[in-house]
Design a protein around this nucleic acid. Sequence first.
DNA 1: CTAAGAATAT
DNA 2: GATATTCTTA
Length: 227
Amino acid sequence: MELPSPEELMPLSQTLITPHLAIAFHITNPSHNHHQQQYYSSQETPQFPHQPPSATEEEPARTLKRPRLVWTPQLHKRFVDAVAHLGIKNAVPKTIMQLMSVDGLTRENVASHLQKYRLYLKRMQGLAGGSAADSATDHLFASSPVPPHFLQTTARSTSDHYLPFVPALQQHRHHQQMVVAAHFGSPRNAHLELPILSRIGASVPGYVEDVESGGRKVLTLFPPGDD
DNA sequence: CTAAGAATAT
DNA sequence: GATATTCTTA
């Protein structure tokens, strides 16, 4: 099965800044500092107010506060594809995350989304007749077709995985995106028993996308627009 | 100890 | 409401 080549992949990206940059730019908690919550390209150089009296120590990357993840339809599609490919059994946050191989995507991100998605699926099974289960909330979930076997009332025993992992093709239409300097994409999760994963060495290049959402700067893993 | 999943919190 | 974080449990 075709695995996404770097060119085929959506410009999946995660706004990431190195701990060093975060410190240097004094980027901290968005809820406390949302007015300065920004992510800078390698060229934009913000003028930060000042350095806190005793904050010159490097803070571990895992301790840094990550920006809120926005689940774009593209990203959700990757999620669904991953779940479909894995089968309900193996579709747990960690595995899904690994198969998605989206740079910067955390297990918690996936876990939270999975929880919501399962609720959606459950709610959808109730409406077997044909009445649409849309409440403007499900627009995201409705954006990607739900694989039939997701809606099994009881878990299957055999054949639960077979769908090819179809990468979301992207017509190089995303122009001037800000390419961030920080590139966390490395063979971070490159050892797994899953055969497919061994072939997925690819993490996606980094693009930065600031998005206004409810007055807060938020980060997207995909540029807005076409699919 | 890790991580899934549900329950809360922001 | 969407996503994050906490909490309990496997």
